[in-house]
Amino acid sequence: MPRNKFDEELALLLNSVRVMGVNLEETLDKVIKNLEDKDPKIAQAIMGGDDDFDNSEVDIERQCLELVLTQTPVASDWREIASCLKLVGDMERIADHCSDISQYTLRLAEKEAVPLPPNFMKMLQVMRKMVYDSITAISENDAELATQVIACDDEVDDYFTQMRQDLTALMQQYPQLVPQYVDYLMISKYVERIADHSTNIAQWVLFVVKNQLSS
């Protein structure tokens, strides 16, 4: 494959990653909004759309392998291709967790409503910013933004630790509402995992741009 053709195929690969990222952002916004609205139809639609992300991951993996097999990449190409293989796995896992959260949203919709736990939406917004910024960092090869994403992971971890304590106290105070608070605890854990995957994505951006991974 001539080099210019290789560059064209690499550009198509990177565009596929960006499109998957945009779709993931849209899905995440629906998930967060529906945690307030608790619309069963929206929750089911999010869960049903998870297969699209699975298909995107498979398609991007295929593009990566075709690039490797048709021409020996130079070192910088290898970094981009290897990073694409890794980061789309993290993006697919974020999509899985969006589906997982929607399953719990569906459960909450069927139960007596309870107030959102303290700082719950703040934790969600920090996580959302991490996802958005990590995807922007991919598109723009922005090492500084990727570094900021990694730095935010501790903030989400701290929110999760506090959330666990707050929800435990609420369960003791309102034992009749334990099922709802357990659901919120599980959702909070998925939020923490999404933040972890965003951190992984940011680390792969650093690998592409600076040939290094954050410790």
Rank of each mutant, 00 (worst) to 15 (best):
Q172S: 12
L116C: 00
P118W: 05
P118M: 02
P115A: 01
L116I: 01
T136N: 11
V126L: 13
P175E: 08
Q172F: 07
L170G: 04
A151P: 01
L108S: 01
D157A: 09
V178L: 06
V149Q: 08
P115F: 00
Q162R: 15
I101S: 01
F160C: 04
M163Q: 14
A109M: 01
Y184G: 04
V156L: 04
V126E: 04
Y159A: 09
D166G: 07
K111M: 14
N119I: 00
K111G: 11
T147S: 15
I138C: 09
Q162K: 15
L177R: 14
N141H: 15
V178Y: 01
D154L: 03
C98N: 12
R164H: 10
M171K: 05
C98D: 03
R128T: 07
E112F: 00
M121P: 00
L106T: 02
Y104F: 07
E140F: 09
A151H: 12
S102Y: 05
S102P: 06
Q125T: 13
N141A: 13
Q148K: 14
Q165P: 00
D153Y: 02
M130V: 00
R107Q: 11
L108H: 02
L177A: 15
Y184E: 02
L116G: 01
D153M: 05
M121Y: 01
D183Y: 11
Y184D: 01
T147I: 10
V178N: 05
R164F: 06
E155V: 14
T105A: 09
D157F: 03
V149I: 03
N119W: 03
Y181W: 14
E110Q: 06
R107M: 08
D153L: 05
R93M: 07
A143T: 05
R164K: 09
L145N: 12
L124V: 11
A113Q: 02
T168Y: 10
P179Y: 09
E112K: 11
C152F: 04
F120Q: 05
V182T: 12
A137G: 07
V156T: 11
C98W: 06
V114E: 02
D158P: 00
S139K: 05
L124A: 07
Y132L: 10
V126F: 04
D153K: 11
Q173G: 01
E155F: 03
V114G: 01
Q162N: 09
M123I: 08
I135C: 10
R93P: 02
Q176T: 14
Q125D: 14
D100A: 10
E155S: 12
E110W: 00
H97F: 08
A169E: 15
K129N: 13
Y181H: 15
T136I: 09
I135K: 05
T147Q: 12
P117Q: 06
I150H: 06
Q180D: 14
C98Q: 09
L177I: 03
E112C: 02
A169W: 10
A95L: 05
V182K: 03
A109N: 03
P115T: 10
D158V: 14
D100P: 00
V126W: 06
Y132H: 15
A113M: 04
V182Q: 08
Q180G: 09
Y132T: 10
Y174C: 11
A146W: 03
C152K: 13
A169C: 11
P118E: 00
H97R: 14
M130A: 04
T136H: 07
